[in-house]
Amino acid sequence: MSAGSEMEALVAQAKQAIGAVADLDALEALASELTGRKSLIAKANQELKDLPPGERPEAGRRIGQARAAINALFEARRGELMAAGEAERIRAERIDVSLPGPSVRIGHEHVISKTIGDLTEILVGMGYRVAEGNEVDTDYYNFEALNTPPGHPARSMQDTLYVESGRGEEVLLRTQTSGVQVHEMESCSPPLYMIAPGRVFRRDTLDPSHSPVFHQIEGLAVDSDLTLGDLAGTLKFFIREYFGGEREIKLRPSYFPFTEPSVEVSMSCFLCDGSGCRTCGHAGWIEVLGAGMVDPNVFGSVGYDSERWTGFAFGLGVERFAMLRYGIPDIRLLYENDQRFLSQF
């Protein structure tokens, strides 16, 4: 038998054997048997040196061709068996895709923080920076510098909680964030555009609409040419950003000691569009915040020249905004921290 036909026979046998193998492990074992060091091919290769020199190149070429052919057969069979194995795995690994994944719990932001965040974002976009003040402050910053000296009737509008400080009724839990205005004006010169979100306190009993602790956002703008028209425009823009572009606003003359003129701001009801519903008490309008032009006495107490600068201030109740926006009926829900409430926002 010539070396050529020997190799052809070898390839034919290999083809048969490879085709008969059913799994990858057996295939690899066969590969080592047919192409490894002890294989017939390896043996034939070793025996090349025994051939006459003239026959060697031809025999070597035939052995190489056979090896390449066998390797190709292995490669093809390997591909077939892997595809078959994967197809089997896909059949075996079929799952109920409606089963839940392992629980990854994501917590919730408290609706008060969320509301402060949303409102702050709007105001920051309008060019206000965010200031922070202390919750315990002195009578001076909470009242006196805000044009509310002792004995002023406006003081009885707010029942104050005092701190046992050994200084009488000097140290208190701030009743409004307006004091931050004064602190800021004392440390900065105009123009000034700032807001101050924060906690405030009143000597109130907790009920569905009152809480001894609540949050306000105070806004203050001081510049050379600000008017009541700027205040109205600012609030209209702000309210529309938060409650929707169709809201109209209405200013009613009101009274706060530290602004004059002072206004109470209402917006057209976002539920009934002004036709009257339960949320707006059938008035079509909802009171949302208090505001006004900064009183010259307040400028006086921080050393601003009220002939040169004018300004406006506004203050809003965060809980009120949140309760309106999300339809929360009772302020107590905001401080009860029931998970069933917390997880809604």
């Binding site: 990854v104 719990r105 994501i106 917590g107 919730h108 932001e109 408290h110 008060i112 923080s113 919750e135 839990l173 906690r199 306190f201 001894p212 602790v213 905001l334 401080y335 921290n337 998970q339 917390l342 997880s343």
Partner: peptide, 12 residues
């Protein structure tokens, strides 16, 4: 919140 904690608000 990403670690699964809910934010709460309590009285001061």
């Amino acid at each position: 919140r990403g670690a699964g904690l809910d934010e709460i608000k309590t009285f001061s």
